[in-house]
Design a protein around this nucleic acid. Structure first.
Lengths: 138, 138
DNA sequence: CTCTTTTATGCAAATCATTTGCATAATGTT
DNA sequence: AACATTATGCAAATGATTTGCATAAAAGAG
């Protein structure tokens, strides 16, 4: 699936350069080895909440919501574990928020200082749990 | 998708009647117009956390004895992990009790606030470890 | 222990959902 | 208006989940 990778690249490109059109963005993406079409770029921008302001695209605060609440990244670990990296000291807060969401495919969470282990019930649940967590913090 | 509907029916059937085998359950489902196979029923029962007790299936509720000592539920997580959900603050106590029991298929435990991760040595040990833990607290 | 019954699971096919690109419509700019 | 840019309906491609079959594993009976 290209989507996730493409959207990450879009975020970093837009933070780094001043980009004025979707075709320009498409060109940059292709130059960094990520295929793209204008259609997909258009849909990505909506999903990421990126808006055009003064003639160029910018990442709004909303897209940084997860980091603001401590969640930095989610990493798959084996078949039934997801590791959440957090800002130092915020792992418990992140874990509590995840627990409260009552996501059924999550078997349980264990928080350290800046890391949360999130056990999912089975492999097929791993991806959807990750999606739901991102939504929670989005 | 049949799955959701089938699982709902399974829950109500099991609460209403005394059902002893998966084939029996399959027959009841089909009589109420929901197609089913033993395979699917088997997988549904796991997903719903339904367990056979005294020769018939029941919707699980944490045994009183277990709850009194903090253990609320046991959940399989992937191949070699079991997650124990506990009353807030009692996870360490539960973990200590499990450790003391010296269950050989348990490789180790890690307790948080209300969650214990229980690593088992191999997949085939997962179910029997869960049984032994329930016995411990039952 | 062996035989029988019951339950679990690897695998491939079927089903269902998401993502994509194309064509083109809508919108904005000059 | 003419041109540039962005959005969207739709069908095809891709990916994920669910299912049934066949059979393995486990539990139970004798």
């Amino acid at each position: 699936m290209q989507k996730e990778q493409r959207q990450k690249k879009i975020l970093s490109l837009i933070r780094a350069k001043r980009i004025g059109t979707q075709d320009e963005l498409k060109a940059h993406l292709e130059r960094s080895g990520v295929p793209a079409t204008q259609s997909s770029v258009s849909r990505d921008l909506v999903e990421l909440g990126i808006v055009k302001h003064n003639g160029h695209y910018t990442v709004p605060k909303a897209a940084m919501g997860a980091a603001a609440r401590g969640l930095l990244e989610l990493i798959k670990a084996g078949d039934a574990l997801v590791v959440a990296r957090c800002e130092p000291g915020l792992a418990s807060a992140v874990a509590v928020e995840i627990d409260r969401a009552g996501i059924t495919e999550i078997a349980g969470t264990l928080a350290g200082e800046d890391t949360v282990f999130i056990a999912v019930t089975e492999h097929r649940a791993q991806l959807s749990a990750m999606k739901k967590i991102w939504e929670l913090f989005g």
